[in-house]
Write a protein that binds this DNA or RNA. Structure first.
Lengths: 395, 395
DNA sequence: GGCCCTGGCAGAACCGTTTCTCCATGCTGC
DNA sequence: GCAGCATGGAGAAACGGTTCTGCCAGGGCC
């Protein structure tokens, strides 16, 4: 250990230190970087470099500083670091809110699973996730420094997304955006999924397939319903569907009942939402319909309770884990890729940031779904297809 | 509008502004408070005061500044504000992690609901929630400035809680802490809940009540099991229980099977975890046991699927919404109550902060649970319906 | 021997707020 | 006519890091 420079530095550091807090004897305060520098006999530059693995320092100094920092229980201030570097290590996750009750994001297993995967993926890359409501504009959003945001199912011309875009915060959306300046998006191939289900039900012998759908205008509901209608038009079946507000748990049972009470009662039903399987099963019982003999059933759900119902119900899984992981990784890629961190990067100063050069539509990824076939949708095996089989890629 | 002071101020502000960035022509940058001050012809002090409702300013100035800020799309930097005020508006929520898969917090509906309520309560008071894993010490925790933290079920001598305590971050725990310096805690009255269930089963005719419990040492499992054993000792029944790792979804079914395969097979079972109802029902079917005639069943669950099983199963609800709301409100009370914000408050410098003076055990709140009695635990008294007809509206 | 290069580090600017301090002005009461 | 006070607002010091710049010493090279 070289002694001469150590002594010199110690004096400088001590002077620096005493020059800072001339007033009170502040004991019990958290150790700052200056304290570490003083204790280690180096400058704060050296401490910062040593702790962050930067600069040109011999390993000896580096380890000594690290040891002193450890001994003092030094924790760098996240706020100061964020202020200087412009990076907080936080990414936002919007959740939709319905009416009075602020949150419905754990209502459906899809969101819960997706949020879990997103949280996990973010942490795996050193980021933490902040859950924020899609409404309530400046109130909360302005109070937290975000490096980027995952927006679930943005509306057309979503004001929140616009605001974030203006602020230069990258946004990746779960759900294909309508007309939003998002950096990227991820979604399931809802058209393909619905067509696969309808074909599957047809092959099982269904002649009139009904749909239990929602009244809201989110991408999922819209695309699925459109795909259903398109399929009906294609095979020449009259559409039979009932829509209800999906966020109201009681309304689903009523809608299921309505659907099966119709004069043109379907002999197969696909329910877009998680509880529809249970609701439809109960409704079928009430009307004395046997599943799958009198009624074929499929619903979209992430819950495995449908493996244990009587009969087990065929479900479509949207694979929310995969969505959550992908969406977060895309977002962090965008955050770390652009990196307007050091100073002003003049080259892209007058271009929209975080967009692919050329500014076409934002890049999107369609992820496949998974149909888990169970007893509720299997009736007559041979009784072949009514409609021509179609490839998943077809829209 | 007074003209003379406006002109004077404008000149000062312009000088101030130009004195700042002599170098580049930084267009497209987000407007800072200096820009607002320059545009409004006032000092940055005035802008800050006007926007934050502080200082002594005439309404005229206040509204003018506000309008200019609005026009410029000014958003204060959260990082700078946090650095200066020491408050980030963020509170942490720990989640437990099991083995490889980092997250199990939405595994049980309890945590999902609790987290949802906590998020909602925090947002209602102007805070945002950050989800962080209970493990992974400095990595992530140091990178985010937290005003306080909700810790779910801290371990005895929990290192994370100790660390947070040393950092002066208030901690409120969900689950009665063993030996942790938490500010406050909230928990269900697990003893009372278990005793209520056991009494309920006894009254329904149970002679030998079994328990399906967990192998982990968290408060919930421990207290519930202890209450069960105490009850057994009290009434003179030999304990009959099986324990399994609750985080393993497959193990539950096996344990349920084991419990019903025992030579001293119970005629009633209480399952501590959410999936136990389904598992026990399936196991009972396998052994030809009718519920509730041959086997009474209760399980702890927040899921409403048990209202629709055949037969419907009696559940104990821990009311996670109430827990989540309470725990967050207690935490924010602690954050805002102590408020060592302005400078060093010498009076409490040498006392442990965020504890009740006198430093006895931290204040805790026991919240009641709710037993939802359904067919599975009702056998002999009036020998009424096994499954009541239910209206479509009922969930 | 001058020069450049490189390693090792100190100094100081800077990030964008909040807030403490203090000054100028006009008015009141005596 | 002046002390005293309220009002309105400017100035500058923090907050606690990161990082750009630059100094100094030593060694290789011509």
């Amino acid at each position: 250990m070289p002694d001469a420079p150590y002594d010199r530095c110690a004096m400088t550091a001590a002077a620096n230190q005493s020059g800072r807090r001339a007033t009170a004897s502040r004991r019990l305060e958290r150790a700052g970087i200056r304290d570490v520098a003083a204790a280690a006999g180096v400058s704060i530059t050296t401490v910062s470099d040593a702790l962050n693995g930067k600069g040109r320092l011999p390993d000896e100094t580096r380890s000594r500083v690290r040891e002193v920092a450890e001994r003092l229980g030094y924790r760098p201030s996240a706020a100061a670091r964020t202020l200087r570097t412009g990076r907080s290590g936080l990414i936002g996750l919007t959740v939709t809110t319905y009416g009075e009750e602020p949150f419905t994001f754990t209502e459906f297993a899809y969101f819960a699973e997706m949020a879990r995967a997103a949280t996990s993926a973010a942490l795996g890359r050193g980021y933490a996730l902040v859950v924020l409501p899609a409404s309530s504009r400046h109130d909360v959003w302005s109070n937290v420094a975000l490096d980027g945001t995952v927006v679930i199912d943005p509306a057309d011309q979503d004001p929140l997304v616009s605001e974030l875009y203006r602020s230069g915060v990258p946004v990746v959306s779960d759900g294909k955006p309508g007309n939003c300046p998002v950096t990227a998006w991820v979604d399931n191939d809802h058209e393909a999924a619905v067509l696969e289900i309808l074909d599957h039900l047809s092959e099982a012998g269904a002649r009139r397939i009904g749909l239990l759908t929602g009244t809201s205008t989110d991408t999922y509901t819209r695309l699925s319903t459109e795909a259903y209608l398109a399929w009906c038009a294609h095979v020449g079946q009259e559409p039979v569907y009932e829509a209800y507000p999906a966020h109201d748990p009681a309304a689903g049972a009523v809608a299921a009942d309505r659907l099966l009470a119709r004069p043109d009662r379907p002999d197969a039903v696909y329910g877009l939402f998680d509880p529809n399987g249970t609701d439809l099963l109960a409704a079928a019982r009430r009307y004395g319909l046997r599943v799958p003999d009198d009624l074929l059933l499929v619903c979209c759900s992430e819950s495995d309770v449908y493996a244990g119902t009587e009969p087990p119900i065929t479900t479509l899984s949207l694979k929310p884990r995969r969505i959550g992981t992908t969406v977060v990784n895309l977002l962090i890629d965008a955050i770390e890729g652009v990196d307007s961190g050091t100073g002003v990067d003049v080259s892209r100063l007058f271009q929209p940031r975080y967009r692919t050069a050329g500014s076409g539509p934002p890049p999107g990824t369609l992820m496949p779904t998974e149909l888990i076939v169970r007893a509720s949708s299997q009736r007559r095996s041979p009784r072949t297809t009514i409609s021509a089989p179609r490839t998943p890629g077809e829209v």
